[in-house]
């Protein structure tokens, strides 16, 4: 296993490099630049700005400089849009925010979704099953751009219980609405995936054998059925976890939470190249990391799996 992990870490580096190069080229190929605006800058002014940020160099030099900066001084460059902040600044203020509400949402989604899914599978075609499926489908079909303004309307304007936005250093009352809005659709997906894979496992011969042997139901479910049933859910959870902790532009937009989900989309819309790249690398790194963790977990769930 250790050698497998080492091999995976080794391949992560060329993967990230490739990601950087592809993203860099894509970004520069897209029409419009960071300094394209309603009123075009006079050529002399534009030249000064491009010289300052090194945008006047050929693209391969820019890529080499960029990667060099990261390796030698962990410098991801300045923001072209927010003049007094570097990419490191933006990520180090925004990422803790998304990490907080993303992680909480993830916990809520896994616990509630998992419980709903297992309950529904154990009592297949009972009222509990229909209830659980109903809830999860209901949560799934309410897109978060409907959910978010609805929550603000109900809890802020009508009931006056919770603030309608802002982060305020992560105070609990500012967390509730974003977490609800973000977790619901993931919760629903987890519930449905858990239900279906649980059902599949419960119908396998080895569970039937266990039942025939007269083992207590609880033992069968939690000791024997749950682990293999987790497999497809885990494949889903890896990328889902990454996308939750890297935030959601919808959440940041409606709740003014200031996470990197919004920075990511804004930097793309503003062509704020360095910020865009910084967050892309973060997302890429996390994606690679969590897929590795998922693979390790596979081997734990099903010891027969060999890489």
């Amino acid at each position: 296993m250790l050698s497998y992990i080492l091999r995976r870490v080794a391949i992560a580096i060329p993967t990230l490099l490739l990601l950087i190069i592809i993203s860099f080229l894509l970004m520069h190929a897209a029409p419009g630049g960071p300094f394209t605006s309603e009123r075009p800058l006079p050529p002399a002014v534009l030249a000064n700005i491009e010289a300052k940020y090194g945008l006047d160099e050929p693209i391969y030099v820019q890529i080499i400089n960029y990667i060099g900066g990261i390796i030698t001084s962990f410098d991801f460059g300045p923001s072209f849009k927010y003049k007094d902040r570097s990419v490191n600044d933006i990520i180090s203020t925004g990422f803790p925010v998304t990490l907080t509400y993303g992680f909480l949402s993830f916990a809520v989604a896994v616990i509630v979704g998992g419980a709903l899914g297992i309950a529904a599978a154990l009592k297949q075609n009972s009222w509990l099953d229909y209830f659980a499926v109903g809830i999860s489908v209901g949560a799934q079909v309410l897109p978060n751009f409907v959910m978010a303004p609805l929550l603000v309307l109900v809890f802020t304007l009508w009931l006056g219980w919770l603030p309608g936005g802002g982060w305020n250093g992560g105070q609990w009352n500012h967390l509730i609405l974003p977490v609800i809005a973000l977790s619901t659709s993931y919760m629903a997906s987890i519930a449905r995936l858990t239900r279906s894979s649980m059902l599949e496992v419960l119908h396998t011969n080895f569970i039937r054998t266990a039942m025939a042997k007269g083992l207590p139901y609880r033992v069968i479910v939690f000791k024997h059925a749950l682990k293999p049933a987790l497999l497809p859910v885990m494949s889903y959870l890896g990328p889902a976890f990454v996308s939750m902790i890297t935030g959601s532009v919808i959440i940041d937009m409606y709740f003014s939470t200031g996470g990197i989900g919004q920075s990511y989309v804004n930097s793309a819309l503003n062509r704020d190249y360095a910020v865009m790249m910084g967050i892309t690398i973060l997302i890429g790194g996390l994606t690679i990391l969590f897929n590795l963790i998922v693979d390790i977990l596979y081997a734990w769930v099903d010891p027969k799996i060999r890489y």
């Binding site: 391949i11 992560a12 993967t15 490739l18 990601l19 592809i22 993203s23 894509l26 970004m27 190929a29 897209a30 029409p31 990328p239 989309v265 793309a268 819309l269 865009m276 892309t280 997302i283 890429g284 994606t287 690679i288 897929n291």
Partner: peptide, 17 residues
């Protein structure tokens, strides 16, 4: 890893292009 890359590249630019 190819899937990882595709998933991480800024999708918006792909669409714009």
């Amino acid at each position: 890893r190819f899937v990882d890359i595709i998933q991480s590249i800024p999708y918006m630019f792909v669409l714009i292009l």
